[in-house]
Each structure stands twice: as structure tokens, then as C-alpha cells.
Simulated scan of single mutants.
Amino acid sequence: MKTHKITTQEDLQKAFDIRVKVFVEEQKVPAEEEIDQFDHLGGECHHILVTNDENQAVGTGRIRLVEGVGKIQRVAILEEYRKLGLGRVIIQALEDIASKELGASKVKLDGQVQAQGFYEKLGYHVASDIFLDAGIEHVLMIKEV
């Protein structure tokens, strides 16, 4: 598996395809909420793509700086590639971008409650009550990087 920053429209579309499959099709997030104003090249978001050994896109995520804090968003992995450690790989790649490229000393994310334990294992702590985003329970989670 390889991880790289997205620099082409073709790779960005592959990330969108993964997100639509995971969030829109599997989790029933409305399509108009999934792709937003930050989803383009050269903007304030840094997008990454994970590819398998056959160079097929299997995971993605993005990060942007919000008030000096790296905000991790849209982390998605195709179902057949879950439980292989790719979530950790994606989060670490985004944390590296936050600290090395964006100069952030903290990162945050709105984690789905069902994934809270995963993020806690990576050093995140809960910093909010449960809230709904796209009809799914989330909590704000924060980590020093």
C-alpha cells in the first residue's frame, strides 16, 4: 500500500469515488453534503490517496488548517480494505502534513462515535458531547502533534 498527496484531478476524482461509496452509499449521507467547497486542487485542503499494490485507490482523507489547528476530515476506506491498518496510515499521513507543512501543533477531527475507540488508540481524546452530523453521531476529538 502506498500513500501520496493528491496533485491531479484524476486522483481527486478517485478520492471522491471512495467517499461517495463509503459515505453516500454505505452510510446514507446526502450527496450534496459530502462534496463541499474545500474539494478542489490548490485550495486550503490537502487530500491524500492510498493505493494498493495494483495501484487501485482504496482509501482517502483530507486536512486543512482551521484557526491554527489541523482539521482532519473525510477519512474513508473501501470496505474490503478495512481492518488492514490503513486508517492508522491515513491519520498519520494527515498528522504529518499538519505538523510539517501547515505548522500545526494540534489536530482535531469530528469522529463518528462508532470509531471513537480507534481514534483513542491513536492518541486522540474526546473534547465534546455527542452531536449529529449528517444524521450520524459524532464527537470532537483532539490530539497534540
Rank of each mutant, 00 (worst) to 15 (best):
R64L: 11
Q73H: 02
Q56T: 10
S99H: 14
G135N: 11
F118S: 05
R74E: 06
E80V: 02
A93R: 01
H46Q: 12
T60V: 08
V58K: 01
T3G: 01
G111F: 07
A127E: 15
V50D: 03
Q116F: 01
F16C: 06
Y124Q: 07
F131L: 09
L122A: 04
V50T: 09
K106S: 06
E34G: 10
R19E: 12
T8W: 01
M141A: 09
V107T: 15
I6M: 02
E44N: 11
M1A: 11
E26W: 08
G117H: 11
K14G: 03
V139A: 05
V58T: 03
P30C: 12
V69H: 09
Q27N: 08
R88L: 01
A98K: 03
P30L: 13
V89P: 00
H125E: 11
E34P: 10
N52T: 06
V145A: 04
I18K: 07
D110V: 00
K100A: 10
R64D: 00
V69K: 15
H138E: 11
V145E: 01
E54W: 00
I48E: 04
G111Y: 08
L78P: 05
V66A: 10
Y119N: 06
L132G: 07
H40W: 06
K121S: 05
E120N: 04
D129N: 13
G61H: 02
T7W: 00
D17F: 04
E33I: 05
K106H: 14
V75T: 05
G43H: 08
A98E: 02
Q92K: 14
I97A: 03
I97V: 15
A93T: 02
E79R: 15
K5F: 01
Y81C: 03
I72V: 14
E120V: 07
F38I: 07
L140H: 05
K2E: 03
D133Y: 12
I48T: 05
E101L: 09
V50A: 13
T7E: 08
L84K: 14
R74Y: 10
R88E: 01
E95N: 04
K143W: 10
I18R: 07
E33Q: 15
V58R: 02
V20H: 14
K100M: 09
K2Y: 03
A134I: 14
T51N: 02
E144V: 12
Q37N: 10
Q13S: 06
H125W: 05
Q9H: 11
P30F: 10
V107D: 14
K83C: 09
K100R: 13
T7Q: 07
V89R: 05
G42H: 07
L49N: 03
A98Q: 04
D39A: 08
A57F: 03
I90T: 12
C45I: 00
K21E: 15
I18A: 09
D110W: 02
A127K: 13
V113G: 00
I72Q: 04
K28L: 12
E67H: 08
D53E: 14
K83G: 10
Q13W: 10
G61R: 06
D129G: 15
G70N: 07
K108R: 13
Q112N: 05
N55Q: 13
E137Q: 15
K121N: 09
E67C: 00
T7K: 09
R62N: 08
V29Y: 05
K5Q: 14
V89K: 12
E32R: 10
V126L: 04
V89G: 00
F118H: 06
A104K: 12
L49C: 07
I63F: 00
T60Q: 04
G59H: 00
P30D: 11
H46C: 09
